[in-house]
């Protein structure tokens, strides 16, 4: 038995689907952002695995470099996202996204 590309693809698909489930069911803004991190990680697993299995020369690591940029993006997203959450919490004293409905008045 051997681990092939499809194993990694299914694992990352599972992780991505779990992230989607979390995004759709959670109301807490912090939990939502955590689910986004899960989905980004699923993407990274995919990138690295595809780079390994479909690129015969290990020195061309385009997928890994792309994954590194995704990590950078995730760091920036987390920092701005949590700044927003803190600002909203400070001003409205609410953390659940469906209760932040000032514009609906």
């Amino acid at each position: 038995m051997e681990i092939g590309l499809s194993h990694y693809l299914i694992l990352s698909g599972l992780l991505f689907a779990i992230g989607i489930y979390g995004i759709l069911t959670r109301r807490n803004a912090i939990a939502l952002l955590m689910c986004v991190e899960l989905m980004l990680n699923a993407v990274n697993i995919n990138l690295v695995a595809i780079n390994r299995f479909l690129q015969p020369d290990w020195r061309i690591m385009t997928g890994q470099i792309f994954a590194a940029f995704v990590i950078v993006l995730a760091a920036a997203e987390a920092c701005v996202g949590f700044a927003l959450v803190i600002a909203i919490y400070r001003n409205l004293n609410r953390i659940n996204v469906d209760e932040i409905n000032l514009l609906k008045w």
Binding site: L5, L9, I10, G13, F16, A17, I20, Y21, L24
Partner: peptide
Amino acid sequence: VGFAAATLVFALIAFLGI
């Protein structure tokens, strides 16, 4: 809804992946 959507996405990705 969440479970249905997640299953759908997973089925799609798994099918495409395999």
